[in-house]
């Protein structure tokens, strides 16, 4: 019933470099009696690759982010980050992995990723100091990364509350990058921003590709991230129903839900299917779920 891709061949069989994130058969439950929030989710992301993960309310997309960061335990399946199998990791091991700077994250609301009582400089240097970098070098790197997200060094002494929403989100991105992580998970990074700031943040994310950072760009809105994602995967009711190169997902969606997502996304050229087409897809999905 699901239009999922055939399972990826084992990593050894490929010529491509080893994925930075390999998720296999991931299942997450909140409470043993409740149905799983995520079921059998498998995907991988290679170095320098951007994966768009699309999911609407109740799809499990934020749970996915939390599971990959070890913030909720997996009931089944495995998550391998930069070669490190995390199955059975204790809280301490997860904390060590997060602090090592290999994996970082950015949330929609930068106030959640930034400490309101710390200046920009402190927020940027803290992850480096945790890693044992000297204060002088940390300060130097903080400055460089601020430049990379196109913010002026003048902002270093400001508190998050003294920045605009767009500046704050760019600081959150810079903070996620200072440790030069292999993998960055971004949950709705541009949803709260206006056009000019969205464009800037997306540009910055594009630049990261060249550095070899793997990105998982999570959003409810296909139209807002698909243009920067090399591949796009669609989560629907806890299952991955579609995954493939972004152009294919947009032009040749296979699952009914993906077709509805594509035809529902507003574009400058009018809807891609007529109302009747969307109506038929909605009916089809209602049938599927009964």
């Amino acid at each position: 019933m699901s239009a999922e891709q055939p399972p990826a061949p084992p990593a050894e069989a490929r010529t491509a470099p080893r994925p930075v994130l390999e998720v296999t058969g991931l299942e997450v439950r909140y409470g043993r009696r409740r149905p799983p929030v995520l079921r059998g989710v498998s995907l991988d992301v290679g170095p320098g690759e951007t994966l768009g993960l699309i999911g609407e309310t109740g799809s499990g997309k934020s749970t996915f982010a939390r599971a990959v960061l070890g913030l909720v335990p997996a009931a089944a399946g495995s998550v391998v980050i930069d070669g490190e199998e995390t199955r059975g990791h204790s809280r301490r091991q997860w904390r060590r992995l997060r602090r090592s700077g290999v994996v970082q994250y950015v949330f929609q609301d930068p106030l959640r990723s930034l400490d309101p009582d710390r200046t920009v400089a402190e927020s940027l240097t803290e992850p480096l100091l945790v890693q044992g970098v000297t204060a002088a070098e940390a300060a130097e790197r903080a400055r460089a990364f601020l430049d990379q997200v196109r913010l002026s060094a003048e902002l270093l002494d400001r508190l998050p509350g003294e920045l605009s929403g767009g500046q704050r989100q760019r600081v959150a991105v810079a903070r996620a990058l200072v440790t030069e992580p292999r993998l960055v998970i971004l949950d709705e990074p541009v949803s709260a921003l206006d056009s000019a700031n969205r464009v800037q943040v997306l540009e910055i994310l594009k630049d990261l590709r060249a550095r070899g950072t793997a990105l998982v760009l999570i959003s409810h809105d296909l139209g807002s991230v698909v243009g920067v994602a090399d591949r796009t995967a669609v989560l629907y009711q806890g299952e991955l129903v579609e995954s493939g190169p972004s152009a294919d997902v947009v032009n040749r969606p296979r699952h009914a839900y993906t077709r509805l997502l594509v035809s529902s996304a507003p574009t400058l050229h009018g809807a891609r299917t007529d109302r009747a087409g969307r109506e038929a897809l909605r009916a089809q999905l209602t049938d599927l779920s009964h």
Partner: peptide
């Protein structure tokens, strides 16, 4: 506003 859609949105693939 238009270029945002054309560079980053679905329009890129249409």
């Amino acid at each position: 506003l238009i270029s945002e859609h054309e560079s980053y949105g679905l329009e890129k693939f249409l």
